[in-house]
C-alpha cells in the first residue's frame, strides 16, 4: 500500500494538500489543506468570498485546482479525466446545495431517483430505493409532488435524500440550510448527519452558520484562500 505523499492523518478518505485556484485575477484558494476520515463530519467555515465553496468544488472534483494534490481513497484526482471524475461523483459522492438543485419538472421521487438512474438503475428499482430514503427523511408523502409544490424545508430534505440515495462515501453539502429558518435548518442537519453517520459517510459541510457547524465533529476555517485546521492548531 502506498502512502500519499503529504502527511495525512492515518486512515483519511480524502486528503488535499496545497490547493491553489484562481478565477482570473481573483485568488480563491491559496495553499489550502484538507483531510477527512470516513464517518467524520467536517465543517468548512469562513467569511463569504473566503474560498469555502471553491474548496468544496475542488475536493469534489467538480473544478480542477490550478495546483496541489487531492487524493481520494488512495487515488490522485489530477490523474483522472472528466469522465472518470463524473463517474466518481455519480457513484461515490453525494451533493446538497443551497438552491437550484431539484429539477423543477420532475416529481420529488424522480428527483431522488435521478442519481441512481444516472448510474443505470431501472426506474422501478431506483424509485423503490428512493422512497426508503424519503421515508428516513420524513418526506415520503411528497413523493409524487413537484418541487414547486413543497416547502423549502421539505425540498431540502428531498435534496438530502437524493444526496444519500447512492450510499455515497463522501457527502458534500454547500450551505445546505442557507435558505431555511432555524427550526427547519436544524431538522435537516439532524437528519443529514444521522443518516451520514449510520452509513459511515464522510460529510464536508460548507457553512457560515455556527449552529450548523455545531453538527460537525471538527471545523476548518478558510480565510483569504488559506485553510486552518482548528483541531490541530490548538
Amino acid at each position: 500500500m502506498t502512502a500519499p505523499t503529504p502527511m495525512p492523518p492515518a486512515g483519511s478518505l480524502l486528503v488535499a494538500t496545497d490547493l491553489r485556484k484562481a478565477y482570473g485575477p481573483t485568488t480563491a484558494l491559496d495553499g489550502a489543506e484538507f483531510s477527512i476520515h470516513p464517518g467524520e463530519v467536517v465543517a468548512v467555515m469562513g467569511p463569504s468570498g473566503s474560498g469555502k465553496s471553491t474548496l468544496l468544488h475542488c475536493l469534489a472534483g467538480i473544478v480542477p485546482p490550478d495546483s496541489g494534490s487531492i487524493v481520494y481513497n488512495g487515488r490522485e484526482m489530477a490523474t483522472m479525466n472528466d469522465t472518470q471524475r463524473s463517474a466518481l461523483r455519480r457513484s461515490e459522492f453525494g451533493f446538497v446545495f443551497q438552491f437550484g438543485q431539484l429539477v423543477p419538472e420532475l416529481t420529488c421521487v424522480e428527483n431522488v431517483a435521478l442519481p441512481l438512474r444516472l448510474n443505470g438503475a431501472s426506474r422501478k428499482e431506483a424509485e423503490q430505493t428512493s422512497l426508503g430514503w424519503m421515508r428516513r427523511l420524513e418526506v415520503d408523502d411528497l413523493a409524487r409532488k413537484r418541487p414547486s409544490e413543497v416547502s423549502g424545508g421539505q425540498g431540502q430534505r428531498v435534496a438530502v435524500a437524493r444526496s444519500l440515495v447512492t450510499n455515497p462515501r463522501v457527502l458534500f453539502a454547500d450551505e445546505p440550510t442557507g435558505a431555511l429558518d432555524s427550526l427547519n435548518g436544524e431538522r435537516v442537519m439532524e437528519l443529514l448527519t444521522e443518516a451520514a453517520r449510520s452509513t459511515n459517510a464522510a460529510v464536508v459541510l460548507v457553512t457560515h452558520e455556527a449552529r450548523v457547524a455545531a453538527y460537525s465533529d471538527r471545523e476548518i476555517v478558510v480565510r483569504d484562500g488559506k485553510s486552518r485546521d482548528m483541531e490541530r492548531a490548538v
Binding site: 463524473s86 446545495f97 438543485q101 435521478l114 444526496s163
Partner: peptide
Amino acid sequence: RKLLSALVAFGTRRRT
C-alpha cells in the same frame, strides 16, 4: 444554468 451546473456536479453525463 444553475440547475445544469448542479446536475453536472452530481455526475450527470453531458451526453444525457
